Amino acid sequence: MNTIKRANPNGGNDVHTKRKNYIGLLVPSLRKAAILRKYAAYQSHSPLFAFSPKSIHWKSKRITGLEYVNGKWNKRTFPFPKAIYNCCYGDKRALLKRFEKTIGPQKCFNALCRFSKWTIYQILADSPWKSYLPESHLYDATKLTAFLDSYKTAFLKPHYGSKGQGIFRVELSPTGIYTLSEQTWDPSFVTSDPSALLSQLETKIGLKKYLIQEEITMKKVNDRSIDFRVMVQKNGAGQWAITGELVRFANKQSYLSNLFTKSDMLQNVLTILYPTKPRKAAAIQNKIHEVCLGVADKLDQHYGHIAELGIDVTIDRNDQIRLIEVNGRPSKMIFKDLGQPCLDQLYQTTIDFAEYLVQNKIAP
């Protein structure tokens, strides 16, 4: 971070800031406020500043924060913002509820951005989107053995996790051989004894909570499994919208498409998959949009005031859309290879929604 210019917290700067309707970016600490620089180029009517939970002065309703103006960092005190975007990974619902008692209901968004895979599954299993989910269960040894007897393969995923960390693939062959793989197709453990498999898993999983999930046989392009990251964001009208679509090509040696080595636009890949069926390709893209918007709306109703999600879907070998995962703090930078206009839309939409919250009264 560049050198910070420190302003007198009791000087003229406070008079200046009182006239403005600020948008606040909640960050883990002021030392980790670099995300502000990415959004600063997109601010318009309401200027931005970054602050941390430790920089809030509740009695005076003031905040010590950072602004990024003309390529310089300034540290000063600010009034409470009119809207807050949570950029911390985790659960900030209690903190932001306290803010909303002063700045108004529904003025803080993405207060929760670390989702439990099992909780997401339970919510969506009680919705019109149930048929798009892979069958899933809470992990225990008995259920895994029964699951493998039925499906022959299973994914084991931690309730909390990202970037493919801690995901295992287990397979039972027709000859009764169990194989355990970690990130790559090559097995790390092979046995004919189910007790030995379970003992190995117990060592690796420990006390972490896991779920058992049906394996989805993904479509492939050039022998690479593919999935789609769809960005769903609330826009300047307060409505959910599809703002980005990315196809991720897994490494040929890996079953995890989120460990991708190549990306492309969704329309390009659908044209490759269905070269003589443009109507089918268009119908699949429209259905992906419908599913992702519906999932976002369902989770918003449950958790309250989410404004951006990264939803991972794929197409299976039967041309059916399958939902893989929902990400509460999706990276925008994975879209950089699709060009600056795509990135601009993602960052601008976040600010546009924050502006919407500043300008509009939202019912509790």
Rank of each mutant, 00 (worst) to 15 (best):
Leu144Val: 13
Pro330Ser: 08
Leu256Asn: 07
Gln345Pro: 04
His289Met: 04
Pro364Leu: 05
Ala363Asp: 09
Ser29Lys: 14
Arg37Gly: 10
Arg93Phe: 05
Thr179Cys: 11
Phe49Gln: 07
Asp337Val: 03
Glu214Phe: 10
Glu215Asp: 02
Val190Pro: 15
Lys152Met: 08
Ile205Thr: 01
Pro134Glu: 02
Ala33Asp: 07
His137Pro: 01
Asp344Gly: 02
Thr64Ser: 06
Ala237Glu: 10
Leu172Asp: 02
Gly164Pro: 07
Phe99Leu: 05
Phe228Gln: 11
Asp297Thr: 15
Ile315Ala: 04
Glu100Ser: 09
Arg322Thr: 14
Asn13Arg: 06
Val221Asp: 02
Gly206Glu: 05
Thr175Lys: 12
Leu207Ala: 14
Ala250Ile: 00
Lys361Pro: 04
Arg31Ala: 03
Ala363Cys: 05
Thr142Ala: 05
His289Arg: 02
Gln320Ala: 08
Phe155Met: 10
Pro187Leu: 08
Gln340Glu: 14
Leu26His: 06
Pro81Ala: 06
Lys72Cys: 02
Lys75Ile: 01
Pro275His: 09
Ala307Asn: 00
Leu273Pro: 11
Asn70Asp: 04
Arg229Ala: 14
Ser60Phe: 04
Val69Cys: 12
Glu100Tyr: 02
Leu144Gln: 05
Ile167Lys: 10
Ile311Cys: 11
Cys113Tyr: 05
Lys18Asn: 08
Ile56Arg: 02
Thr276Trp: 14
Phe335Cys: 10
Thr153Asp: 08
Leu198Ala: 09
Ala307Ser: 11
Asn258Ser: 13
Lys252Cys: 00
Leu30Tyr: 05
Asn318Glu: 14
Thr271Lys: 09
Ser192Asn: 02
Thr142Val: 05
Phe109Tyr: 11
Thr102His: 11
Asp344Asn: 15
Leu270Asp: 03
Ala94Trp: 10
Pro364His: 12
